[in-house]
Nucleic acid binder design. Structure first.
Length: 419
DNA sequence: TCTGGGGTCCTAGGACCC
DNA sequence: TCTGGGGTCCTAGGACCC
């Protein structure tokens, strides 16, 4: 048996832990620059606010229902996530799946005791972190996901839903919309509905050859999992990333080369930091800049891939190459709305083949980088860097930011004694 | 006026090789 | 009229996840 522990409305719940005034009212967390909705409380869902919806489209609703707005506070969410995962690990081998979810490996556990254990875990996380979670337990990961969704829908389940008897599972699947199944997105949902497949149960009754043909081996795995055959493996040790990306939309259009350069340099530095954290090097650097694609008039979507002779993790080298690439794709007269950097062709740092006429002192670079990473880790991000300064106009706007309640000593809540 | 920011895997088709 | 066959690698595009 396998379990999934999924935090309910995770970002919102994190905000609520430190700001109880948000309880019971519609609240949303916004994307960078407070542009669109990326998380919603149940109350916000109930009044029809949608994931990814731009704020300007729902101004009236926000006002009418007095919706609380929160700018994204990712350091807080990550810290709360770490706390949740630490608690889960006390009960069963845990595989972190995303910031708000983890799988629990219940193989070898007594199935008769799992319901009670699941409830204990749910209660413990709630008490120790303040986060409400939904735990689903079933023979496969896909079924466990369904169980955890039931948990959210039916509060009387009290934070844990165990699904293991074949007839119970069948009963659930017959009512479960196929589009809500993990692994079936909007495209496949449409295709399946058109073929008369509306519930998860309908899907399990389709011939495997048909599923394979229409949805490839990925769809077939989902089909098998729904029929109780585990076949989605998730690695215990998070594999190294194959691509590392940093990109942002700008608060307003940017047409000045130096400003773009500053942005691209800082994205590259962030990417390189992530790369060094996983002890890898990259062999490829990709830089892109977009104009606003919503506008009718002429657009520009430019990108350049640079292949490296010798793979590297040096911010110095990468920022220099990114600047060259940017110089090649930049065109004056355009207002750019978004830019980004992607590192690819990633491999472990050990075993780098240095080319014969390598002009770079790699030892020196790597000593410099590790001093830099160290300082940034201890003194906070952005303490030292090689980026070309900062521009006020590029800074992300966060009008409704909560404080760093758990990670900054100055922001820790103070308890006042009543006299 | 205004639309997020990360990732994964799979497949088909073209280039190229022998 | 007739136009090999098998393999690899790369890329773009399409689907999905949170």
């Amino acid at each position: 048996m396998v379990g999934i522990c999924d935090a309910n409305n995770f970002y919102i719940s994190c905000e609520r832990v430190f700001n109880p005034a948000l309880n019971g009212r519609p609240a949303v967390v916004l994307s960078n620059n407070d542009r669109c909705i990326i998380a919603r409380s149940n109350e916000a869902k109930a009044i029809g606010l949608k994931m990814g919806q731009p704020i300007y489209q729902v101004r009236d609703t926000l006002r009418t229902y007095n919706v609380a707005l929160c700018s994204p506070n990712f350091p807080l969410y990550q810290d709360m996530s770490d706390r949740m995962q630490a608690i889960l690990k006390r009960f069963a081998p845990t595989i972190v799946y995303s910031i708000d979810e983890a799988f629990l490996d219940f193989r070898g556990f007594d199935p008769g005791k799992l319901d009670a254990l699941g409830h204990t875990i749910s209660r413990t996380v709630r008490h120790s972190t303040g986060l409400p979670v939904s735990i689903g337990i079933a023979p496969t990961k896909t079924l466990a996901k369904i169980a955890s969704k039931l948990c959210k829908k039916y509060p009387k389940l009290n934070g844990c839903c165990l699904m293991h008897k074949a007839e119970d599972i069948e009963k659930v699947l017959k009512k479960f919309p196929v589009g809500d199944v993990w692994g079936i997105g909007p495209r496949y949902e449409k295709m399946l509905n058109a073929a008369g497949v509306n519930t998860a149960y309908d899907f399990t009754q389709m011939p495997p050859q048909w599923v394979r043909k229409k949805m490839s081996v990925v769809g077939l795995r989902t089909w098998k999992e729904l029929r109780g055959e585990p076949c989605i493996e998730i690695d215990e040790i998070a594999p190294d990333k194959q691509h590392i990306c940093t990109s942002r939309s700008f608060p307003s259009e940017v047409s000045d080369f130096d400003m773009l350069h500053t942005a691209v340099a800082s994205f590259t530095a962030t990417c390189a930091e992530k790369l060094r954290r996983q002890k890898s090097v990259c062999g490829e650097l990709y830089v892109f800049i977009y104009t606003d694609w919503h506008k009718e008039q002429s657009q520009s979507f430019e990108r350049r891939i640079v292949k490296l002779v010798t793979p590297t993790d040096s911010t110095l080298e990468l920022t220099a190459m990114a600047a060259d690439a940017l110089r090649q794709i930049y065109r004056s007269g355009f207002g750019y709305k978004k830019a980004g950097v992607i590192l690819g062709d990633i491999s472990p740092r050990t075993g780098v083949q240095v080319s014969l006429f390598d002009p770079i002192d790699r030892g020196k670079h790597s000593r410099l980088m590790s001093v830099m990473d160290d300082l940034n880790r201890k003194q906070g991000r952005g303490t030292v860097g090689v980026a070309a300064g900062r521009h006020k106009l590029l800074e992300t706007v966060h009008e409704h930011l909560s404080r760093q309640f758990t990670t900054d000593i100055n922001d820790i809540l103070k308890v006042k004694a009543k006299d």
